[in-house]
């Protein structure tokens, strides 16, 4: 349970400002603490809050960046940039303005689109790194992995806005209003982008269905 700020019990090195019930087990992710409270604790100098925010939002940024870029190293760079923007903006974060996750989805997506546009002028740097073994879980089934790889390859053939819409909608599981907010467009435009993307993906993936055990 979030206990609020108690400077008297704070420690400058670890857990500054985050007093916890000593009867509770230690939770490195602080999963029961709201995003905004964690950000406020980070701003107050809490190292544990920094760690929890990293573990909560680092994978989120990386996941979107990887689906958008298809390359592990580039996805890590973009995700690190997005998180850096979060650290810098933290002192000025207005409570209730927007969800931190929504803000990060927007920042990450925009950084990815900027990166893709720059990359389109640099030939020879466009091969998606979809088969990177370090990215995919070794314990997952080969079939899931093959389908996921096939989808990633297909995603990379979509226009960037369609790819962004489909990743946020069908992989990240966001609602259309949220996606519209992230993409700074209307809900109707999101539905249109998503519809066109699905039709394109169906066309690209249909020939592979038999090979991937879907018939």
């Amino acid at each position: 349970m979030w206990q609020g700020f108690h400077p008297a019990t704070s420690c400058p090195e670890v857990g500054f400002g985050l007093a916890r019930n000593t009867m509770m087990p230690f939770d490195a992710n602080m999963s029961d603490i709201r995003d905004e409270d964690l950000l406020a604790a980070f701003t107050s100098g809490d190292a544990l809050a920094a760690k929890a925010l990293t573990q909560r939002f680092g994978p989120l940024c990386y996941g979107v960046a990887f689906r958008m870029l298809g390359n592990q190293a580039e996805a890590e760079d973009i995700a690190q940039d997005a998180m850096m923007k979060l650290w810098k903006m933290a002192p000025d974060w207005e409570s209730g303005r927007a969800k931190i996750s929504t803000w990060l989805y927007r920042i990450t997506s925009n950084l990815c689109i900027d990166h893709l546009r720059r990359r389109s002028f640099a030939p020879g740097d466009e091969v998606p790194d979809v088969a990177d073994e370090s990215v995919l879980s070794a314990e997952s089934s080969l079939q899931n992995k093959a389908r996921s790889d096939a989808l990633q390859t297909a995603l990379m053939q979509l226009p960037e806005r369609q790819r962004q819409a489909i990743v946020l909608r069908h992989i990240e599981g966001l609602s259309n209003p949220e996606i519209a907010q992230i993409m700074e467009t209307s809900i109707e435009a999101v539905e249109s982008l998503s519809g066109r993307a699905k039709r394109a993906l169906t066309d690209i993936l249909s020939p592979q269905k038999k090979a991937l055990g879907l018939i």
């Binding site: 980070f42 920094a50 760690k51 925010l53 990293t54 573990q55 680092g58 994978p59 990386y62 996941g63 990887f66 689906r67 592990q72 996805a75 890590e76 995700a79 690190q80 998180m83 850096m84 650290w87 370090s134 990215v135 995919l136 879980s137 997952s140 079939q143 899931n144 992995k145 389908r147 996921s148 096939a150 989808l151 990633q152 297909a154 069908h170 992989i171 599981g173 993906l201 993936l205």
Partner: peptide, 24 residues
């Protein structure tokens, strides 16, 4: 394919998370 992609969610490396935390 979407189900497979959600199950095979790309996970960042430990080094990446350490770099982000150091930035923080």
């Amino acid at each position: 394919f979407f189900t497979a992609a959600r199950l095979e969610s790309p996970a960042p490396g430990k080094a990446f998370l350490e770099k982000v935390e150091l930035d923080a």
